[in-house]
């Protein structure tokens, strides 16, 4: 098992003059599931995006290490799998074309068996050649998990992973999250009780905004 560590050091984010959170300090290690919780607008997704390197923090640092070696932010995408409702894949391509394009752009040879097995796991195998524009929102959410898992990343960041999914879809996601967490670092950003019940430890993002408000 790879030893992946994610360290948040004095993490602060402001949008304009609006404080989202301040001074978040935490350390997460592979082999476990961690949660980012909070009500709507509390900054869960912002924190997930900062962890994924998609946006920068206003202050503080996010340090990713794999087997004690720091990962350069330019190469983070090689180690990261990300799912969120605002992640959009290409509607003009079929599900399989999307996945194959992404693998080629990542510079990874496509493993047909692995791709087929993921399509099977997420119950999309029969529809893999259909254009994404014909997919329902639940199916689009499931293809995002294939997108996140196909390159075998060490860090998985799932922001509201079960949105648009039915109970069968949710069960599949929970099963896979628990399986992946045995060897990887999994972060779930959600306000769903059932999602957070999987987590070993939860960061309540609102707490890091409230502290600042109380100071004032």
């Amino acid at each position: 098992m790879d030893n992946y560590t994610l360290t948040l050091h004095n993490l602060t984010k402001l949008f304009g003059r609006r404080l989202i959170f301040t001074d978040i300090n935490a350390e997460f290690k592979s082999g476990s599931i961690y949660g980012f919780a909070g009500s709507n607008g509390s900054g869960k997704s912002t924190l997930a995006k900062i962890v994924a390197g998609v946006i920068s923090p206003t202050k503080g640092k996010v340090i990713h290490t794999l087997n004690s070696k720091i990962i350069n932010s330019d190469n983070l995408h090689e180690y990261l799998g990300f799912v969120s409702p605002y992640l959009i894949l290409y509607d003009e391509f079929s599900a399989e074309e999307n996945i194959l394009h992404f693998l080629k752009i990542r510079g990874i040879d496509a493993d047909k068996d692995k791709i087929d097995s993921l399509f099977n796991d997420f119950n999309l195998y029969d529809r893999r050649n259909d254009l994404l524009k014909g997919y329902s929102s639940g199916m689009k959410q499931r293809i995002k998990f294939i997108f996140a898992l196909v390159h075998n990343p060490s860090l998985l960041v799932f922001d509201e992973p079960t949105s648009n999914l039915d109970s069968k879809g949710k069960d599949t996601v929970y099963k896979i999250v628990e399986e992946e967490a045995k060897s990887k670092l999994v972060i779930l950003a959600s306000n769903e009780e059932s999602d957070l019940s999987l987590c070993y430890e939860t960061v309540f993002v609102e707490k890091f905004n409230q502290q600042e408000k109380n100071k004032k």
């Binding site: 994924a52 390197g53 998609v54 330019d74 190469n75 995408h77 990261l80 990300f82 605002y86 992640l87 959009i88 894949l89 290409y90 509607d91 992404f102 752009i105 990542r106 997108f147």
Partner: peptide
Amino acid sequence: ERGTTLTLHLIAKPSTIFTG
């Protein structure tokens, strides 16, 4: 416009995106 910029962020480094 299609909202796929985030997807590009997640699959390649900036230099790859610029060159492509």
